[in-house]
C-alpha cells in the first residue's frame, strides 16, 4: 500500500474546507478547524450547529461531502487507534445484557483486532480505568443499575483504555450530577496534562472558561476558534447564538464579558 505523506502532522485535528450535507442540506458548510495537541477544547454552538456531526465526521462515521480531515496528520481511517470516542449516553441501550467491566473492556476491542477474545490483560486494564473514575466497586454490576453520572464515568473509563491521543466526547456533562461533572472534568484535564488532546461538544456556556483552554464556536460555519481569552467574547457568542443569548451582566455589551452568558432555552 502506498503510504501517503502526513498532512499537517503538528496538529491534533486539522479540518480543511469541510462540507457535510444530509439530503442536500448542509450541516457543516466549508469549515476549517485546527486544534493543536495537548489542549482541552470545547465545541459550542446552538442546536443544529453541526457539533455532533463535526465529531462524527472526524471519526470517519459520517462521510464528508467535500474537504478533508487529518488527525495527527493521518486521515480518519488510518487514525482509528489514535482516537477515542465517548458518544452521547442515550446512543446505546443500557438494558443490554452486560456488565460494567465488560463495557470498559470494549475500549480494547480495536487494539485486540478481529476474532481475538478479550482476556486477563484487557480485564486488568479495564479494572485500572474503573478505579481511575471511582467505579471499581461497580465492575460486576449489570449496566442498567447505573445512574446517569455513573454511566458517564463508565464511558469515560472505556475511552481511557483505548490509549488514544485524541479523545472526542459528545456532551459528556449532559444530565449528570455535579459531583460526576467535576470528576469528569478533573480526569479530562489530567489526560490533557499527559499530552492528550480532548475535544468536547459542550452545551453549558457558563462553564466554558472554567473547564477549557481552547474553543471552537460553530454554527454551520466556524464563527471563531482559538484560545479561550481571544475567542470567548460577547461578539462571537452573539454571532453564533444570535438573539437567543442573554448576557446577564448589563455591562456585558463590551467585547470581553465577565458576565455569565446563558443560552436561552426556547
Amino acid at each position: 500500500m502506498k503510504r501517503e505523506k502526513r498532512h499537517e502532522p503538528e496538529l491534533a485535528l486539522h479540518i480543511e474546507d469541510l462540507t457535510v450535507a444530509y439530503e442536500g442540506k448542509p450541516v457543516l458548510w466549508d469549515i476549517d478547524v485546527n486544534i493543536p495537541p495537548g489542549v482541552m477544547a470545547a465545541v459550542i454552538g446552538p442546536n443544529g450547529a453541526g457539533k455532533s456531526t463535526l465529531i462524527k465526521t472526524a471519526l470517519g462515521l459520517v462521510k464528508p461531502t467535500a474537504g478533508h480531515i487529518c488527525i495527527h496528520g493521518y486521515p480518519p481511517r488510518q487514525a482509528l487507534k489514535r482516537v477515542a470516542y465517548v458518544p452521547q449516553r442515550s446512543s446505546v441501550d443500557w438494558d443490554f445484557p452486560t456488565t460494567v467491566v465488560d463495557v470498559v473492556m470494549m475500549g480494547r476491542y480495536g487494539h485486540l483486532g478481529w476474532f481475538r477474545w478479550p482476556g486477563k490483560r484487557e480485564h486488568r486494564r479495564a479494572m485500572d480505568a474503573l478505579s481511575a473514575v471511582g467505579m471499581e466497586a461497580f465492575a460486576k454490576r449489570q449496566i442498567n443499575q447505573l445512574s446517569g453520572g455513573q454511566q458517564q464515568r463508565v464511558f469515560l473509563a472505556r475511552a481511557m483504555v483505548q490509549d488514544a491521543d485524541v479523545l472526542f466526547l459528545d456532551e459528556p456533562m449532559a444530565g449528570v450530577d455535579a459531583t460526576t461533572e467535576k470528576a469528569v472534568v478533573a480526569l479530562l484535564q489530567e489526560l490533557r496534562d499527559q499530552g492528550k488532546t480532548i475535544i468536547v461538544v459542550h452545551h453549558d456556556l457558563q462553564t466554558v472558561r472554567d473547564y477549557f483552554d481552547w474553543l471552537v464556536i460553530l454554527n454551520v460555519r466556524v464563527v471563531a476558534q482559538g484560545r479561550i481569552p481571544e475567542v470567548y467574547t460577547g461578539e462571537n457568542l452573539r454571532k453564533a447564538y444570535g438573539g437567543r443569548i442573554a448576557l446577564l451582566d448589563p455591562d456585558s455589551a463590551g467585547e470581553t464579558p465577565d458576565a455569565v452568558p446563558r443560552e436561552v432555552v426556547n
Partner: peptide
Amino acid sequence: LACYKELKLASFDWQLAAALGL
C-alpha cells in the same frame, strides 16, 4: 464464536464499533 466480541459491540454500541473499524 469467531465474531462474538464484534457482534456484541455492534449490538451494544454501533458507533464505537464503526469508530474502532470493527
